[in-house]
């Protein structure tokens, strides 16, 4: 069964452990610049949003890649990069609507989420539930349930108010 990385923005506490874990897993260093995930923050408003490759089904980064270095991995439902083909032209950075592709100046190469080849460590470390790696069929289930619960609650109040 195919899995996908689900981000629940409301659950993110902004700790940036995902950035740290990502950089250590891929590069062996602590350096958020070299992570494939970033928490974008409005600190003074308490807003934190994890930004990561959404592994688009029809990915702009693939369309613009002049050397076909970026390809679709249907099995893991993600975007693959062939570094032997990549010429580092950075067109993918320009094309990505989420800013999820970046350039690692230390390794002089393009980086984006590779789902840790089916075991994304960020989701493994995130205990808040902001990042979860789940079956594709379950991707919306939790959110749906939570929303339904709120709906149910307000309907119950509505009914109670009108029926006394």
């Amino acid at each position: 069964m195919q899995k996908m990385l689900v981000v629940d923005y409301e659950k993110c506490t902004g700790c940036r452990l995902c950035e740290l874990v990502c950089a250590v897993k891929h590069e062996g260093v602590s350096n958020p610049l070299r992570a494939r995930i970033h928490i974008v923050k409005w600190e003074m408003k308490g807003i934190m949003v994890p930004m990561i490759c959404n592994q688009c089904e029809s990915a702009p980064c693939i369309s613009v890649c002049p050397t076909n270095a970026r390809t679709r991995d249907e099995e893991q439902r993600k975007v693959n990069v062939d570094y032997d083909k990549c010429i580092g032209c950075k067109m993918c950075i320009v094309a990505c609507p989420f800013g999820a592709v970046s350039f690692d100046p230390f390794a002089s190469r393009i980086i984006s989420c590779d789902l840790c080849d089916g075991d994304p460590r960020c989701a493994d470390f995130c205990e808040t539930g902001a990042l979860r790696y789940v079956e594709a069929s379950q991707s919306n289930k939790q959110r749906q349930r939570e929303a339904a619960e709120k709906l149910y609650e307000s309907m119950r109040k509505f009914t109670a108010a009108y029926t006394g």
């Binding site: 874990v21 250590v24 062996g28 260093v29 602590s30």
Partner: peptide, 21 residues
């Protein structure tokens, strides 16, 4: 800053941190 802090034993550090969390 964007300077690397090299982790001495990255995979062990990851596993141990997972456990300690």
């Amino acid at each position: 800053g964007t300077m690397d802090i090299k982790i001495a034993h990255p995979s062990e550090a990851l596993e141990y941190n997972r456990k300690i969390i």
